[in-house]
């Protein structure tokens, strides 16, 4: 298991039987591989599918059947197809239980930036704003720091904000934070990660949750 798979596996534990789930591009896409077999969820893809199945074998690829990342997919029994306006009505209308999204930055209040980079032309937004605004619960998955080692959980966003809506849960390779009305609460530390390390790599202030948990009993295979 690599670090991205670890994050995805942790995020998968949040899904509940019967959830309608939208998975963003990147780490969120991997979550589908870690959903426990006793939990049935229905994957929604904003390009018009409810009931997305696993990736097809190469010989079974159908050019008319892709997910929102434009990758080939399959559909499960009971799936349905619909147009884009209906699909986004489902999202805005609060009919999607959980969206798991990638993120560029998260601020101290749990608001995120995930659609544009400062200094570059803003020419793509896709469904990022719709999903963040409309989904009942938002989980973001990300590496704790950027490629350059900069904190991604910051006091104030320097990247353009995606929505005023806060996310609910932040899952990184090092920790899990819950977002409450008054800010971020550290829920879990990954195995072999110290509180000092998290404080050093997190720019935004955070509190320790009452249910704080340090995953000591397993080793972190990517470390």
């Amino acid at each position: 298991m690599n670090v991205k798979q670890y994050i995805a596996a942790r995020a998968a534990k949040e899904l509940k039987h019967g959830d309608i789930v939208n998975l963003g591009i990147g780490i969120p896409t991997l979550v589908a591989d870690y959903i426990p077999s006793d939990v049935q969820v229905f994957l929604h893809s904003e390009n018009g599918i409810l009931g997305v199945g696993p990736s097809p074998d190469p010989e079974d690829i159908d050019e008319n059947l892709v997910n929102a990342g434009k990758l080939p997919v399959t559909v499960l029994e009971g799936s349905s197809f619909f147009d884009s306006a209906s699909s986004f009505a489902m999202i805005r209308g609060g009919h999607v239980s959980v969206s798991i999204l990638g993120v560029l930055q998260i601020d101290a209040m749990g608001r995120i930036a995930n659609w544009a980079v400062p200094g570059k032309n803003v020419l793509g937004v896709g469904g990022a704003m719709d999903l963040l605004e409309g989904s009942k619960k938002i989980i973001v998955t990300t590496l704790h720091t950027s490629n350059k080692g900069e904190a991604k959980i910051v006091k104030e966003l320097t990247y353009p904000i995606t929505s005023e809506r806060k996310v609910d849960l932040i899952i990184t390779d090092l920790a899990v934070f819950e977002v409450k009305a008054d800010g971020l609460y550290l829920l879990e530390l990954s195995p072999e990660v110290s509180l000092e390390e998290i404080q050093q790599k997190t720019d935004a202030p955070f509190r320790i949750a009452q249910s704080f948990y340090h995953g000591k009993e397993v080793t972190a295979p990517w470390l």
């Binding site: 904003e46 986004f88 805005r92 032309n121 937004v125 896709g126 719709d130 409309g134």
Partner: peptide
């Protein structure tokens, strides 16, 4: 992106759900 930077083309960006609606 290049055509936009070279001012050869205008772009009006909408969230996907806003556009479809």
């Amino acid at each position: 992106v290049k055509a936009y930077q070279d001012k050869e083309m205008e772009v009006d960006l909408l969230p996907q759900g806003t556009m479809s609606e």
